[in-house]
């Protein structure tokens, strides 16, 4: 079984309760269409299993094939440093088909974030190291493409992609005596 090598810590972006029984870690890329397609499923999973589930998102940008994935991940980190990671995360996926730096500026502006500060952060690569650390951690954990999910530390492999998540989490919760 392939397992998550990098434990979830306070350095992570976590959505949901600290005491959740299930931790779902997603390694994703804002420009990957498969991640975009998984997004509504991930949202549904969160709604359905709250408060038993928390979601962690880590960056796995395939920058050679997705030229905007790097800046998008850094933009999300920039928003995160200003307490708005998840709002930016949702906005980036919602606008996946037209990702560009000007669009990221507009999204920052709509979230009342400083576009000057964002431009500066992207130009200096302030969050590039954090994004790269996510990527390498993913590689060491056996992330083999995007999106890759880990449910309580075990890699979730399914021929149906994210569609199998609900069933797998159901089974896990049934097995957990609460």
């Amino acid at each position: 079984m392939v397992t998550l090598k990098v434990p979830v810590t306070s350095r992570d972006h976590i959505r949901g309760s600290q005491d959740a029984v299930v931790t779902l870690v997603e390694y994703g890329d804002y420009e990957c269409p498969y991640c975009g397609a998984a997004q509504p499923i991930v949202e549904r999973v969160q709604q359905r299993f709250s408060p038993d589930l928390r979601l962690v998102f880590r960056h796995f940008p395939l920058t050679e094939v997705h030229p905007h994935a790097g800046p998008a991940a850094e933009t999300a980190e920039f928003a995160g440093a200003n307490g708005k990671f998840w709002s930016m995360h949702d906005a980036l996926f919602a606008n996946q088909r037209r990702l560009s730096v000007p669009l990221m500026m507009a999204l920052a502006s709509s979230l009342n974030l400083s576009t000057v500060a964002l431009r500066d952060a992207l130009a200096t690569g302030r969050y590039a190291e954090k994004v790269q650390a996510d990527f390498i951690g993913g590689v060491r954990s056996g992330v083999n493409g995007t999106p890759t999910f880990f449910i309580n530390g075990a890699r979730f492999d399914s021929p149906n992609g994210a569609f199998g998540l609900e069933e797998a989490i159901d089974r896990l919760l049934l097995a957990t005596t609460r």
Binding site: D29, Y34, L62, E64, V65, F135, V139, N144, G145, T146
Partner: peptide
């Protein structure tokens, strides 16, 4: 037919 196919993935891990 996937974006994270094995060779593309390795391409990103070359520096490692």
């Amino acid at each position: 037919p996937v974006c994270g196919d094995q060779m593309s993935l390795y391409n990103h891990i070359l520096p490692e």
